Deep mutational scan, measured.
Amino acid sequence: MPSETPQAEVGPTGCPHRSGPHSAKGSLEKGSPEDKEAKEPLWIRPDAPSRCTWQLGRPASESPHHHTAPAKSPKILPDILKKIGDTPMVRINKIGKKFGLKCELLAKCEFFNAGGSVKDRISLRMIEDAERDGTLKPGDTIIEPTSGNTGIGLALAAAVRGYRCIIVMPEKMSSEKVDVLRALGAEIVRTPTNARFDSPESHVGVAWRLKNEIPNSHILDQYRNASNPLAHYDTTADEILQQCDGKLDMLVASVGTGGTITGIARKLKEKCPGCRIIGVDPEGSILAEPEELNQTEQTTYEVEGIGYDFIPTVLDRTVVDKWFKSNDEEAFTFARMLIAQEGLLCGGSAGSTVAVAVKAAQELQEGQRCVVILPDSVRNYMTKFLSDRWMLQKGFLKEEDLTEKKPWWWHLRVQELGLSAPLTVLPTITCGHTIEILREKGFDQAPVVDEAGVILGMVTLGNMLSSLLAGKVQPSDQVGKVIYKQFKQIRLTDTLGRLSHILEMDHFALVV
């Protein structure tokens, strides 16, 4: 994948999101292997301009796509893939009243899908469409860049269908997702969380590099694949309309690839034109409109599966009536509230959605109805927002919020430890010299600072030695090549209790 991002070429006709291997024109390309080798690009942008032909009021008969309808489940399912879809609609009884809503608040519980998330729908649909058009064949390999849930859905379907599955996901995604993927037989590649989507090191860039190296491999490409919004247009939206008897006044959905909100909203605009569509985008993402909503100094966020630093091709923002931004604290607070007060075992993005819903639905009156999409299960986040310690460490809970008995030293300040200034190293000294210094002084790690004293990161003896043994660096290389740029900081005025929580999850903390 090139470091400079080429513009994806656009073909003359058809839909841009065809499933299957992508040609340089962004659509299915038939021909000899030699032709494909000559024409197939190194990668295709996940934010390529959409060429979708959908228009409100256009006859369904003019759609270029294969459409399906929700099917009634048999008493005995032939395999677990038949437990994807037909998820329950559940009334939220307490939270709406707590925040003064007059309307009825309903939750579409997508964590009841077989793999635990709304992404099971698009995973199965992308595979079925690729099999139907002859792209996927027995023994082929599926590769997908994902925040985890699409990966789980694909790995689940691949396990049943017999495909090899490789999932490329950023490091910030939970260990629970990784464990589930491994249990399903998927191979996992992790990428830096802070890598831009168009960087060769991003999950998108690495996935395309693997595709170019592995024979008979395919990126189904949830960011561009029409099967993504079509899955929701054909099934999720129809289920909502049936469950609500066609009567709903507002739908609120958090947005990642945009397939969920695009597919549902398009069908609702056709069948229930008075329904307002509300999009939820986390602070630090750029999906919301108008652009002024996205202006923030924050560039990272903890909530998973929603928000991006690019506009995915499948996201149709014209069908969203209003956007709201959400933050991590309210997302996790509301997710825990949904679990504790409503018994809905949902993930953090569901918290984002409901946090926005109780604001947006203030305009609705008694007798009206708001539906929220709860995308995934708490299963993926047992060591994250479900953990009091994690919430404390991230600053989303305060010590006084917890009532468990603490040891005698818990409320003492870090400054009472009488710490001395640490050994520091410059980023320009060599790895070999740094190892000598650390061994001589008896230290395992040291902060790396520039000549102005600005902290650049941390270097550890173990990481340097393993990097040297693996051949990633040489003793003569500058130590700046092996620094940890993500590390926890703590102030002298913070409590030892807070430091204790940090050290339970990290090997060190830097006192500043």
Results as ranks from 00 to 15, higher is better:
residue 246 G to R: 14
residue 73 S to M: 14
residue 109 C to W: 05
residue 86 D to G: 13
residue 187 E to Q: 09
residue 232 H to K: 03
residue 258 G to W: 00
residue 5 T to V: 02
residue 80 I to S: 13
residue 115 G to N: 07
residue 47 D to F: 02
residue 64 P to D: 08
residue 94 K to R: 12
residue 163 Y to I: 03
residue 31 G to I: 02
residue 161 R to N: 11
residue 82 K to F: 10
residue 45 R to H: 12
residue 252 V to Y: 07
residue 102 K to R: 13
residue 70 P to I: 11
residue 255 V to G: 07
residue 170 P to V: 03
residue 5 T to K: 08
residue 156 L to P: 00
residue 40 E to K: 13
residue 189 V to Q: 07
residue 270 E to N: 04
residue 237 A to F: 04
residue 130 A to M: 00
residue 54 W to Q: 06
residue 53 T to A: 08
residue 117 S to N: 06
residue 224 R to W: 02
residue 156 L to C: 01
residue 168 V to P: 03
residue 196 R to E: 01
residue 16 P to G: 10
residue 86 D to W: 08
residue 248 L to Y: 02
residue 77 L to K: 07
residue 45 R to W: 08
residue 228 N to G: 02
residue 114 A to Y: 04
residue 182 R to S: 08
residue 86 D to M: 10
residue 261 I to A: 12
residue 244 C to N: 03
residue 153 G to N: 04
residue 109 C to T: 05
residue 130 A to D: 07
residue 158 A to I: 03
residue 82 K to A: 10
residue 135 T to P: 03
residue 250 M to W: 00
residue 183 A to W: 01
residue 222 Q to D: 02
residue 262 T to D: 01
residue 95 I to P: 00
residue 78 P to V: 05
residue 194 N to K: 12
residue 89 M to Y: 06
residue 171 E to M: 05
residue 205 G to F: 12
residue 36 K to A: 09
residue 175 S to Y: 13
residue 198 D to Q: 06
residue 193 T to H: 08
residue 133 D to Y: 09
residue 31 G to K: 12
residue 121 R to A: 03
residue 101 L to K: 03
residue 91 R to V: 04
residue 5 T to P: 08
residue 192 P to A: 01
residue 108 K to P: 01
residue 190 R to K: 15
residue 134 G to R: 12
residue 273 P to F: 03
residue 225 N to D: 01
residue 199 S to P: 02
residue 179 D to K: 04
residue 158 A to L: 02
residue 236 T to M: 13
residue 168 V to T: 05
residue 95 I to F: 13
residue 125 R to M: 06
residue 73 S to K: 10
residue 178 V to P: 06
residue 124 L to Q: 11
residue 187 E to T: 11
residue 150 T to V: 04
residue 239 E to G: 10
residue 20 G to Q: 10
residue 243 Q to H: 08
residue 101 L to P: 02
residue 23 S to H: 10
residue 55 Q to Y: 11
residue 69 A to W: 03
residue 110 E to P: 01
residue 5 T to F: 09
residue 230 L to N: 13
residue 7 Q to L: 09
residue 17 H to T: 11
residue 38 A to Y: 08
residue 153 G to F: 03
